[in-house]
Amino acid sequence: MFLNSIFADPERVSRLIEIAKNSLQPLLEGAIVYTIPLTLISFICGIILAVLTALARISAIKPLQMIARIYVSAIRGTPLLVQLFIIFYGLPTVGIVIDPFPSAVIGFSLNVGAYASEIIRAAILSIPKGQWEAGYSIGMSYPQTLKRVILPQASRVSLPPLSNTFISLVKDTSLAAMILVTEMFRRAQEIAATNYEFLLLYLEVALIYWIICFLLSIVQGRLEKRLDRFVS
């Protein structure tokens, strides 16, 4: 019925094409200026946090273990949108005011940090004990063995799940629209609010997310091949 009404009206069709064309630039701009940087910065901060958290979880120091556990449990047990709202709308009531973009970075980094820490922890634990012992036996310290022997192997193991985390993050950044970051999805909302072509704009923005994620999955495949070279 909807399609009928479109094709019955050639003027409407050309209007839709016109809107789609005109909105492409602001949407891509939203992607390039906000969505992609937000993803990259949050992912990098998140991975650093994740490695630290994973190390805390496997350390012998009980309080560190405990802090890491609580952090992971709290982040995994609460909705991402609620976390973002706490940071952006909640904290100002106790005098902590953070701009939309940094708020989003904090929220997404904390999120990636928690989820990825579980991936990295599992990857570290999957490396045979003999590898630690081989490192120690040639005189390496714990940090040396970790850096030179364990993490290079663990990163290979954790690459596929971490790429999935990354791709999910690209899509999750659309939630930043709710805390006023003018990333791609928020731009789509804003444009649609002026011309009421909601379906068109949301389909368009969906398509752009899809293309980005598709390209990323190709990169992921290549990376995995490259890292596979030292295993049979």
Binding site: P128, G130, Q131, E133, A134, Y136, S137, I138, G139, V149, P152, Q153, R156, F230, V231
Partner: peptide
Amino acid sequence: RRLTGMVFQSYNLFPH
């Protein structure tokens, strides 16, 4: 530990 060198049953070479 440096005084001794250890050779393992399962080699434990660094695969990477």
